[in-house]
Design a binder for these strands. Structure first.
Lengths: 227, 227
DNA sequence: TCGTGACCCAAAAAACGAAACTGGTCATAC
DNA sequence: GTATGACCAGTTTCGTTTTTTGGGTCACGA
Protein backbone atom coordinates (compact mmCIF):
# COMPACT_ATOMS: atom_id res chain seq x y z
CA UNK A 1 0.00 0.00 0.00
CA UNK A 2 1.40 3.40 -0.97
CA UNK A 3 2.12 6.03 1.61
CA UNK A 4 -0.52 8.23 0.01
CA UNK A 5 -3.13 5.51 0.60
CA UNK A 6 -1.93 5.14 4.18
CA UNK A 7 -2.50 8.85 4.68
CA UNK A 8 -5.95 8.65 3.06
CA UNK A 9 -6.86 5.63 5.20
CA UNK A 10 -5.88 7.53 8.32
CA UNK A 11 -7.76 10.63 7.19
CA UNK A 12 -10.90 8.63 6.41
CA UNK A 13 -10.92 6.88 9.77
CA UNK A 14 -10.55 10.14 11.69
CA UNK A 15 -12.82 12.32 9.58
CA UNK A 16 -15.65 9.79 9.59
CA UNK A 17 -15.40 9.58 13.36
CA UNK A 18 -14.61 13.14 14.44
CA UNK A 19 -15.60 15.18 11.41
CA UNK A 20 -13.44 17.24 9.04
CA UNK A 21 -13.15 20.29 11.29
CA UNK A 22 -12.19 18.39 14.43
CA UNK A 23 -9.52 16.39 12.65
CA UNK A 24 -6.11 18.08 12.63
CA UNK A 25 -3.48 17.43 9.99
CA UNK A 26 -1.09 16.51 12.79
CA UNK A 27 -3.48 13.81 13.94
CA UNK A 28 -3.79 12.40 10.44
CA UNK A 29 0.00 12.33 10.25
CA UNK A 30 0.27 10.53 13.57
CA UNK A 31 -2.37 8.00 12.60
CA UNK A 32 -0.62 7.38 9.29
CA UNK A 33 2.80 7.08 10.95
CA UNK A 34 4.39 9.97 9.04
CA UNK A 35 5.31 13.57 9.84
CA UNK A 36 3.12 16.56 9.12
CA UNK A 37 5.58 17.78 6.50
CA UNK A 38 5.22 14.49 4.66
CA UNK A 39 1.49 15.10 4.33
CA UNK A 40 2.33 18.29 2.40
CA UNK A 41 4.59 16.40 0.04
CA UNK A 42 1.52 14.51 -1.16
CA UNK A 43 -1.27 17.08 -0.79
CA UNK A 44 -1.16 20.79 -1.43
CA UNK A 45 -3.47 21.57 1.49
CA UNK A 46 -5.86 20.00 3.99
CA UNK A 47 -8.70 20.64 1.60
CA UNK A 48 -6.81 18.99 -1.27
CA UNK A 49 -6.40 15.96 0.97
CA UNK A 50 -10.13 15.86 1.55
CA UNK A 51 -10.75 16.24 -2.18
CA UNK A 52 -8.49 13.27 -2.84
CA UNK A 53 -10.23 11.29 -0.13
CA UNK A 54 -13.61 11.83 -1.74
CA UNK A 55 -12.32 10.93 -5.20
CA UNK A 56 -10.96 7.67 -3.86
CA UNK A 57 -14.17 6.94 -1.95
CA UNK A 58 -16.30 7.63 -5.03
CA UNK A 59 -14.12 5.35 -7.16
CA UNK A 60 -14.46 2.51 -4.68
CA UNK A 61 -18.18 3.09 -4.35
CA UNK A 62 -18.62 3.10 -8.12
CA UNK A 63 -16.66 -0.13 -8.48
CA UNK A 64 -18.67 -1.82 -5.73
CA UNK A 65 -21.94 -0.69 -7.25
CA UNK A 66 -20.96 -1.86 -10.73
CA UNK A 67 -19.93 -5.24 -9.32
CA UNK A 68 -23.24 -5.66 -7.53
CA UNK A 69 -25.22 -4.68 -10.62
CA UNK A 70 -23.18 -7.05 -12.83
CA UNK A 71 -23.76 -9.91 -10.43
CA UNK A 72 -27.54 -9.37 -10.40
CA UNK A 73 -29.34 -10.86 -13.47
CA UNK A 74 -31.91 -8.06 -13.26
CA UNK A 75 -29.36 -5.48 -12.19
CA UNK A 76 -29.54 -3.56 -15.45
CA UNK A 77 -32.97 -2.06 -14.89
CA UNK A 78 -33.61 1.16 -13.02
CA UNK A 79 -35.03 -0.78 -10.13
CA UNK A 80 -32.14 -3.22 -10.19
CA UNK A 81 -29.60 -0.44 -10.03
CA UNK A 82 -31.39 1.10 -7.10
CA UNK A 83 -31.73 -2.23 -5.34
CA UNK A 84 -27.97 -2.65 -5.49
CA UNK A 85 -27.07 0.76 -4.14
CA UNK A 86 -27.01 -0.63 -0.61
CA UNK A 87 -24.31 -3.10 -1.49
CA UNK A 88 -22.24 -0.19 -2.72
CA UNK A 89 -22.89 2.23 0.11
CA UNK A 90 -22.50 -0.45 2.77
CA UNK A 91 -19.37 0.06 4.81
CA UNK A 92 -18.84 3.48 3.31
CA UNK A 93 -19.89 6.11 5.84
CA UNK A 94 -17.92 8.70 3.91
CA UNK A 95 -20.06 8.16 0.82
CA UNK A 96 -23.15 8.32 2.98
CA UNK A 97 -21.98 11.59 4.54
CA UNK A 98 -21.18 12.97 1.11
CA UNK A 99 -24.56 12.06 -0.35
CA UNK A 100 -26.51 13.49 2.55
CA UNK A 101 -24.13 16.45 2.99
CA UNK A 102 -23.86 15.63 6.66
CA UNK A 103 -22.50 18.73 8.44
CA UNK A 104 -21.27 16.66 11.38
CA UNK A 105 -18.80 14.88 9.11
CA UNK A 106 -18.14 17.42 6.36
CA UNK A 107 -18.32 20.58 8.50
CA UNK A 108 -16.71 23.61 6.88
CA UNK A 109 -15.69 21.55 3.87
CA UNK A 110 -19.35 21.75 2.83
CA UNK A 111 -18.99 25.50 2.28
CA UNK A 112 -15.55 25.58 0.70
CA UNK A 113 -16.22 27.30 -2.62
CA UNK A 114 -13.41 25.46 -4.37
CA UNK A 115 -13.91 22.13 -2.62
CA UNK A 116 -14.54 19.11 -4.80
CA UNK A 117 -17.92 18.48 -3.22
CA UNK A 118 -19.23 21.88 -4.18
CA UNK A 119 -17.84 21.70 -7.69
CA UNK A 120 -19.00 18.17 -8.41
CA UNK A 121 -22.48 18.98 -7.21
CA UNK A 122 -23.12 21.47 -9.94
CA UNK A 123 -23.01 18.85 -12.59
CA UNK A 124 -25.86 16.42 -12.56
CA UNK A 125 -25.71 13.63 -15.08
CA UNK A 126 -28.70 11.77 -13.72
CA UNK A 127 -31.21 13.07 -16.26
CA UNK A 128 -28.89 12.31 -19.17
CA UNK A 129 -28.41 8.84 -17.76
CA UNK A 130 -32.18 8.24 -17.71
CA UNK A 131 -32.41 9.48 -21.31
CA UNK A 132 -29.72 6.98 -22.29
CA UNK A 133 -31.59 4.21 -20.52
CA UNK A 134 -34.67 5.19 -22.53
CA UNK A 135 -32.60 5.05 -25.73
CA UNK A 136 -31.70 1.40 -25.08
CA UNK A 137 -35.27 0.49 -24.13
CA UNK A 138 -34.67 0.05 -20.41
CA UNK A 139 -36.95 2.92 -19.33
CA UNK A 140 -40.36 3.66 -20.85
CA UNK A 141 -40.52 6.60 -23.25
CA UNK A 142 -43.59 8.21 -21.69
CA UNK A 143 -41.76 9.73 -18.73
CA UNK A 144 -39.59 12.84 -18.51
CA UNK A 145 -35.94 12.00 -17.69
CA UNK A 146 -35.71 15.12 -15.51
CA UNK A 147 -38.69 14.06 -13.40
CA UNK A 148 -37.41 10.49 -13.02
CA UNK A 149 -33.99 11.81 -12.05
CA UNK A 150 -35.51 14.09 -9.43
CA UNK A 151 -37.64 11.32 -7.95
CA UNK A 152 -34.55 9.15 -7.65
CA UNK A 153 -32.70 12.00 -5.95
CA UNK A 154 -35.62 12.37 -3.55
CA UNK A 155 -35.49 8.66 -2.78
CA UNK A 156 -31.76 8.86 -2.19
CA UNK A 157 -32.16 11.86 0.08
CA UNK A 158 -35.02 10.21 1.91
CA UNK A 159 -33.11 6.96 2.25
CA UNK A 160 -30.33 8.68 4.13
CA UNK A 161 -32.25 11.38 5.96
CA UNK A 162 -35.61 9.93 6.91
CA UNK A 163 -33.95 7.45 9.22
CA UNK A 164 -32.96 10.30 11.47
CA UNK A 165 -36.50 11.57 11.76
CA UNK A 166 -38.02 8.42 13.22
CA UNK A 167 -37.41 6.19 16.21
CA UNK A 168 -35.17 3.30 15.19
CA UNK A 169 -37.82 0.71 15.95
CA UNK A 170 -40.06 2.16 13.25
CA UNK A 171 -37.49 1.71 10.51
CA UNK A 172 -37.66 -1.57 8.60
CA UNK A 173 -34.50 -3.35 7.39
CA UNK A 174 -32.74 -1.31 4.73
CA UNK A 175 -32.70 -4.23 2.28
CA UNK A 176 -36.47 -4.62 2.40
CA UNK A 177 -36.93 -0.92 1.83
CA UNK A 178 -34.61 -0.94 -1.19
CA UNK A 179 -36.30 -4.06 -2.55
CA UNK A 180 -39.70 -2.36 -2.50
CA UNK A 181 -38.34 0.82 -4.06
CA UNK A 182 -36.73 -1.23 -6.82
CA UNK A 183 -40.09 -2.89 -7.47
CA UNK A 184 -41.94 0.43 -7.52
CA UNK A 185 -39.47 1.81 -10.06
CA UNK A 186 -39.54 -1.25 -12.31
CA UNK A 187 -43.32 -1.67 -12.14
CA UNK A 188 -43.86 1.74 -13.72
CA UNK A 189 -40.67 2.55 -15.57
CA UNK A 190 -39.28 -0.68 -17.00
CA UNK A 191 -40.87 -2.18 -20.13
CA UNK A 192 -41.35 -5.96 -19.90
CA UNK A 193 -39.05 -6.47 -22.88
CA UNK A 194 -36.17 -4.45 -21.37
CA UNK A 195 -32.69 -5.95 -21.79
CA UNK A 196 -30.86 -5.92 -18.48
CA UNK A 197 -27.48 -6.24 -20.25
CA UNK A 198 -28.11 -3.10 -22.25
CA UNK A 199 -28.77 -1.19 -19.05
CA UNK A 200 -25.59 -2.54 -17.48
CA UNK A 201 -23.58 -1.32 -20.47
CA UNK A 202 -25.02 2.17 -20.10
CA UNK A 203 -24.15 2.21 -16.39
CA UNK A 204 -20.59 1.01 -17.07
CA UNK A 205 -19.96 3.80 -19.53
CA UNK A 206 -21.55 6.53 -17.40
CA UNK A 207 -19.62 5.43 -14.32
CA UNK A 208 -16.36 5.47 -16.25
CA UNK A 209 -17.04 8.97 -17.56
CA UNK A 210 -18.05 10.12 -14.12
CA UNK A 211 -14.81 8.95 -12.59
CA UNK A 212 -12.74 10.62 -15.30
CA UNK A 213 -14.59 13.83 -14.55
CA UNK A 214 -14.04 13.52 -10.81
CA UNK A 215 -10.30 13.08 -11.24
CA UNK A 216 -10.21 16.09 -13.54
CA UNK A 217 -12.09 18.20 -11.00
CA UNK A 218 -9.75 17.18 -8.23
CA UNK A 219 -6.74 18.13 -10.36
CA UNK A 220 -7.85 21.63 -11.21
CA UNK A 221 -9.30 23.39 -8.18
CA UNK A 222 -8.20 26.82 -9.43
CA UNK A 223 -10.65 26.65 -12.29
CA UNK A 224 -13.61 26.39 -9.96
CA UNK A 225 -16.48 28.73 -10.56
CA UNK A 226 -17.92 30.78 -7.74
CA UNK A 227 -21.48 30.01 -6.99
CA UNK B 1 -63.44 35.20 13.82
CA UNK B 2 -62.64 34.55 17.47
CA UNK B 3 -59.92 36.46 19.22
CA UNK B 4 -58.03 33.22 19.70
CA UNK B 5 -58.00 32.71 15.91
CA UNK B 6 -56.86 36.30 15.44
CA UNK B 7 -53.94 35.61 17.76
CA UNK B 8 -53.12 32.39 15.93
CA UNK B 9 -53.34 34.14 12.54
CA UNK B 10 -50.89 36.77 13.76
CA UNK B 11 -48.58 34.16 15.24
CA UNK B 12 -48.60 32.13 12.03
CA UNK B 13 -47.78 35.09 9.84
CA UNK B 14 -44.85 36.16 12.01
CA UNK B 15 -43.46 32.72 12.82
CA UNK B 16 -43.52 31.59 9.21
CA UNK B 17 -41.68 34.75 8.21
CA UNK B 18 -39.25 35.34 11.09
CA UNK B 19 -39.13 31.96 12.80
CA UNK B 20 -40.34 30.92 16.26
CA UNK B 21 -37.33 32.26 18.16
CA UNK B 22 -37.25 35.67 16.51
CA UNK B 23 -40.95 36.23 17.06
CA UNK B 24 -41.71 37.88 20.42
CA UNK B 25 -45.01 37.46 22.24
CA UNK B 26 -45.30 41.24 22.29
CA UNK B 27 -45.10 41.30 18.50
CA UNK B 28 -47.78 38.65 18.15
CA UNK B 29 -49.96 40.71 20.47
CA UNK B 30 -49.38 43.87 18.43
CA UNK B 31 -50.12 42.08 15.16
CA UNK B 32 -53.32 40.63 16.64
CA UNK B 33 -54.38 43.97 18.08
CA UNK B 34 -54.47 42.81 21.71
CA UNK B 35 -52.23 43.23 24.77
CA UNK B 36 -49.58 40.78 25.85
CA UNK B 37 -51.58 39.91 28.93
CA UNK B 38 -54.51 38.92 26.73
CA UNK B 39 -52.32 36.37 24.98
CA UNK B 40 -51.82 34.68 28.37
CA UNK B 41 -55.56 34.53 28.94
CA UNK B 42 -55.79 32.20 25.96
CA UNK B 43 -52.48 30.33 26.08
CA UNK B 44 -50.57 29.13 29.08
CA UNK B 45 -47.20 29.93 27.51
CA UNK B 46 -45.50 30.82 24.23
CA UNK B 47 -44.93 27.14 23.60
CA UNK B 48 -48.60 26.32 24.24
CA UNK B 49 -49.48 28.95 21.65
CA UNK B 50 -47.21 27.25 19.16
CA UNK B 51 -48.74 23.86 20.01
CA UNK B 52 -52.20 25.30 19.31
CA UNK B 53 -50.98 26.81 16.08
CA UNK B 54 -49.73 23.46 14.86
CA UNK B 55 -52.93 21.69 15.85
CA UNK B 56 -54.96 24.23 13.90
CA UNK B 57 -52.63 24.00 10.90
CA UNK B 58 -52.80 20.21 10.92
CA UNK B 59 -56.60 20.30 11.07
CA UNK B 60 -56.80 22.62 8.09
CA UNK B 61 -54.26 20.59 6.20
CA UNK B 62 -56.18 17.39 6.86
CA UNK B 63 -59.44 18.96 5.70
CA UNK B 64 -57.82 20.27 2.52
CA UNK B 65 -56.26 16.90 1.79
CA UNK B 66 -59.52 15.05 2.35
CA UNK B 67 -61.32 17.49 0.06
CA UNK B 68 -58.75 17.00 -2.69
CA UNK B 69 -58.90 13.22 -2.38
CA UNK B 70 -62.73 13.24 -2.42
CA UNK B 71 -62.77 15.37 -5.56
CA UNK B 72 -60.40 13.00 -7.39
CA UNK B 73 -62.13 9.88 -8.84
CA UNK B 74 -58.90 7.91 -8.31
CA UNK B 75 -58.06 9.71 -5.09
CA UNK B 76 -58.72 6.67 -2.90
CA UNK B 77 -55.65 4.72 -3.94
CA UNK B 78 -52.25 5.08 -2.34
CA UNK B 79 -50.97 6.87 -5.38
CA UNK B 80 -54.04 9.08 -5.51
CA UNK B 81 -53.63 10.13 -1.91
CA UNK B 82 -50.01 10.97 -2.53
CA UNK B 83 -50.83 12.86 -5.71
CA UNK B 84 -53.18 15.09 -3.77
CA UNK B 85 -50.79 15.94 -0.99
CA UNK B 86 -49.64 19.01 -2.90
CA UNK B 87 -53.12 20.45 -2.95
CA UNK B 88 -53.17 20.12 0.84
CA UNK B 89 -49.69 21.42 1.54
CA UNK B 90 -50.05 24.28 -0.93
CA UNK B 91 -50.28 27.63 0.81
CA UNK B 92 -49.29 26.07 4.11
CA UNK B 93 -45.65 26.92 4.80
CA UNK B 94 -46.17 26.03 8.44
CA UNK B 95 -47.12 22.46 7.54
CA UNK B 96 -44.14 22.30 5.23
CA UNK B 97 -41.84 23.56 7.98
CA UNK B 98 -43.35 21.06 10.40
CA UNK B 99 -42.91 18.10 8.05
CA UNK B 100 -39.35 18.94 7.19
CA UNK B 101 -38.53 20.09 10.74
CA UNK B 102 -37.10 23.29 9.34
CA UNK B 103 -34.89 24.86 12.03
CA UNK B 104 -35.20 28.29 10.45
CA UNK B 105 -38.92 28.32 11.21
CA UNK B 106 -39.22 26.04 14.21
CA UNK B 107 -35.93 26.95 15.95
CA UNK B 108 -35.81 26.04 19.63
CA UNK B 109 -39.35 24.66 19.46
CA UNK B 110 -37.83 21.67 17.65
CA UNK B 111 -35.99 20.69 20.82
CA UNK B 112 -38.68 21.42 23.37
CA UNK B 113 -39.12 18.05 25.10
CA UNK B 114 -42.78 18.70 25.86
CA UNK B 115 -43.60 20.46 22.59
CA UNK B 116 -46.40 19.00 20.50
CA UNK B 117 -44.07 18.38 17.59
CA UNK B 118 -41.82 16.14 19.60
CA UNK B 119 -44.70 14.26 21.22
CA UNK B 120 -46.73 13.76 18.06
CA UNK B 121 -43.71 12.40 16.26
CA UNK B 122 -43.47 9.35 18.47
CA UNK B 123 -46.75 7.99 17.31
CA UNK B 124 -46.83 6.82 13.74
CA UNK B 125 -50.10 5.56 12.38
CA UNK B 126 -48.86 5.21 8.86
CA UNK B 127 -48.22 1.46 9.02
CA UNK B 128 -51.65 0.79 10.54
CA UNK B 129 -53.17 2.90 7.81
CA UNK B 130 -51.49 0.80 5.10
CA UNK B 131 -52.73 -2.37 6.81
CA UNK B 132 -56.28 -0.99 6.73
CA UNK B 133 -55.92 -0.14 3.05
CA UNK B 134 -54.86 -3.76 2.49
CA UNK B 135 -57.93 -4.95 4.41
CA UNK B 136 -60.26 -3.12 1.99
CA UNK B 137 -58.35 -4.35 -1.07
CA UNK B 138 -56.73 -1.02 -1.96
CA UNK B 139 -53.12 -2.17 -1.39
CA UNK B 140 -51.74 -5.56 -2.48
CA UNK B 141 -51.30 -8.13 0.28
CA UNK B 142 -47.75 -9.12 -0.70
CA UNK B 143 -46.08 -6.07 0.83
CA UNK B 144 -45.22 -5.28 4.44
CA UNK B 145 -47.19 -2.27 5.74
CA UNK B 146 -44.15 -1.14 7.73
CA UNK B 147 -41.97 -1.08 4.63
CA UNK B 148 -44.58 0.76 2.55
CA UNK B 149 -45.03 3.29 5.35
CA UNK B 150 -41.30 3.88 5.56
CA UNK B 151 -40.96 4.34 1.80
CA UNK B 152 -43.76 6.92 1.89
CA UNK B 153 -42.02 8.72 4.76
CA UNK B 154 -38.83 8.72 2.71
CA UNK B 155 -40.67 10.19 -0.24
CA UNK B 156 -42.19 12.85 1.97
CA UNK B 157 -38.83 13.70 3.45
CA UNK B 158 -37.23 13.73 0.03
CA UNK B 159 -40.01 15.86 -1.41
CA UNK B 160 -39.34 18.61 1.07
CA UNK B 161 -35.60 18.27 1.56
CA UNK B 162 -34.13 17.28 -1.77
CA UNK B 163 -35.12 20.59 -3.29
CA UNK B 164 -32.56 22.31 -1.09
CA UNK B 165 -29.76 20.09 -2.29
CA UNK B 166 -29.96 20.98 -5.97
CA UNK B 167 -29.85 24.11 -8.09
CA UNK B 168 -33.40 25.32 -8.70
CA UNK B 169 -33.15 24.83 -12.46
CA UNK B 170 -32.68 21.09 -11.97
CA UNK B 171 -35.94 20.66 -10.10
CA UNK B 172 -38.97 19.83 -12.22
CA UNK B 173 -42.43 21.17 -11.42
CA UNK B 174 -43.75 19.76 -8.15
CA UNK B 175 -46.96 18.54 -9.76
CA UNK B 176 -45.11 16.45 -12.30
CA UNK B 177 -42.97 14.93 -9.60
CA UNK B 178 -46.02 14.02 -7.49
CA UNK B 179 -47.79 12.63 -10.54
CA UNK B 180 -44.91 10.25 -11.25
CA UNK B 181 -44.63 9.20 -7.61
CA UNK B 182 -48.37 8.49 -7.56
CA UNK B 183 -47.96 6.32 -10.65
CA UNK B 184 -44.98 4.45 -9.18
CA UNK B 185 -46.97 3.67 -6.04
CA UNK B 186 -50.13 2.57 -7.87
CA UNK B 187 -48.24 0.50 -10.46
CA UNK B 188 -46.83 -1.76 -7.78
CA UNK B 189 -49.15 -1.44 -4.81
CA UNK B 190 -52.69 -1.00 -6.12
CA UNK B 191 -54.57 -4.03 -7.42
CA UNK B 192 -56.47 -3.33 -10.67
CA UNK B 193 -59.77 -4.12 -8.95
CA UNK B 194 -59.19 -1.67 -6.07
CA UNK B 195 -62.22 0.43 -5.05
CA UNK B 196 -61.25 4.07 -4.75
CA UNK B 197 -64.28 4.82 -2.55
CA UNK B 198 -63.23 2.19 -0.01
CA UNK B 199 -59.83 3.85 0.25
CA UNK B 200 -61.42 7.26 0.72
CA UNK B 201 -63.52 5.89 3.59
CA UNK B 202 -60.39 4.55 5.31
CA UNK B 203 -58.66 7.91 4.94
CA UNK B 204 -61.68 9.78 6.34
CA UNK B 205 -61.76 7.65 9.45
CA UNK B 206 -58.00 7.74 10.04
CA UNK B 207 -57.86 11.51 9.59
CA UNK B 208 -60.69 11.97 12.07
CA UNK B 209 -58.97 9.79 14.66
CA UNK B 210 -55.69 11.57 14.03
CA UNK B 211 -57.21 14.94 14.72
CA UNK B 212 -58.82 13.73 17.93
CA UNK B 213 -55.43 12.49 19.04
CA UNK B 214 -53.70 15.76 18.18
CA UNK B 215 -56.21 17.77 20.21
CA UNK B 216 -55.69 15.40 23.14
CA UNK B 217 -51.91 15.77 22.90
CA UNK B 218 -52.17 19.54 22.84
CA UNK B 219 -54.38 19.49 25.95
CA UNK B 220 -52.12 17.38 28.11
CA UNK B 221 -48.51 18.51 27.75
CA UNK B 222 -47.68 17.45 31.32
CA UNK B 223 -48.08 13.80 30.41
CA UNK B 224 -45.26 13.94 27.87
CA UNK B 225 -42.63 11.24 27.99
CA UNK B 226 -38.97 12.14 27.88
CA UNK B 227 -37.14 10.79 24.90
C1' DT C 1 17.27 14.55 -1.95
C1' DC C 2 13.78 13.75 1.16
C1' DG C 3 11.59 13.68 5.71
C1' DT C 4 11.14 15.98 9.81
C1' DG C 5 8.97 18.74 13.58
C1' DA C 6 9.92 23.42 15.70
C1' DC C 7 8.22 27.58 14.51
C1' DC C 8 5.32 31.51 12.61
C1' DC C 9 1.31 34.03 12.53
C1' DA C 10 -3.39 34.63 11.15
C1' DA C 11 -7.49 33.03 12.77
C1' DA C 12 -10.34 31.20 16.17
C1' DA C 13 -11.84 30.56 20.73
C1' DA C 14 -12.49 31.86 25.42
C1' DA C 15 -13.32 34.99 29.13
C1' DC C 16 -15.41 38.93 31.02
C1' DG C 17 -18.37 42.74 32.21
C1' DA C 18 -21.94 45.67 30.65
C1' DA C 19 -26.03 46.37 28.15
C1' DA C 20 -30.09 44.73 26.09
C1' DC C 21 -33.78 41.60 25.71
C1' DT C 22 -38.11 39.12 26.62
C1' DG C 23 -41.31 35.49 28.77
C1' DG C 24 -44.33 35.76 32.16
C1' DT C 25 -46.68 38.24 36.16
C1' DC C 26 -49.91 41.07 38.45
C1' DA C 27 -51.46 45.73 40.54
C1' DT C 28 -54.28 48.82 38.56
C1' DA C 29 -57.83 50.81 35.62
C1' DC C 30 -61.95 50.48 33.08
C1' DG D 1 -64.76 40.60 35.86
C1' DT D 2 -61.53 41.29 32.33
C1' DA D 3 -57.77 43.60 29.84
C1' DT D 4 -53.73 46.03 30.22
C1' DG D 5 -48.69 47.17 29.93
C1' DA D 6 -45.05 48.46 33.53
C1' DC D 7 -42.17 45.64 35.84
C1' DC D 8 -39.12 41.65 37.37
C1' DA D 9 -35.59 38.48 36.83
C1' DG D 10 -33.33 35.27 34.18
C1' DT D 11 -31.24 34.91 29.75
C1' DT D 12 -28.99 36.50 25.72
C1' DT D 13 -26.14 39.53 23.12
C1' DC D 14 -22.30 42.47 22.35
C1' DG D 15 -17.72 44.52 22.30
C1' DT D 16 -13.19 44.12 23.95
C1' DT D 17 -9.20 41.78 25.53
C1' DT D 18 -6.58 37.75 26.24
C1' DT D 19 -5.35 33.17 25.20
C1' DT D 20 -5.16 29.22 22.36
C1' DT D 21 -5.09 26.85 18.12
C1' DG D 22 -3.48 24.68 13.99
C1' DG D 23 -2.55 25.11 8.73
C1' DG D 24 1.36 25.64 6.42
C1' DT D 25 6.53 26.60 6.07
C1' DC D 26 11.33 25.61 5.93
C1' DA D 27 16.17 25.14 8.18
C1' DC D 28 18.34 21.23 9.37
C1' DG D 29 19.86 16.41 9.63
C1' DA D 30 20.12 11.77 7.82
Amino acid sequence: MSREDQILDAAEALIVHYGYDKTRVSEIAAEAGVSKGAIYLHFQSKQALMDGLLVRAMERYGEAWLEAVEADPRGGTIGGMYRNVLKAVKNSPLIEAMMSQDPRVLGSYLHAPDGLLRRAQMRSMRAEFIAEMQAVGCVRDDVSPAVVAHVMDMLGYGLLGAGEMKPREQIPPMEKTLELIGELLDARLTPPEAQSDAGKAVLRRVMSEGQDMMRELARSPDEAEER
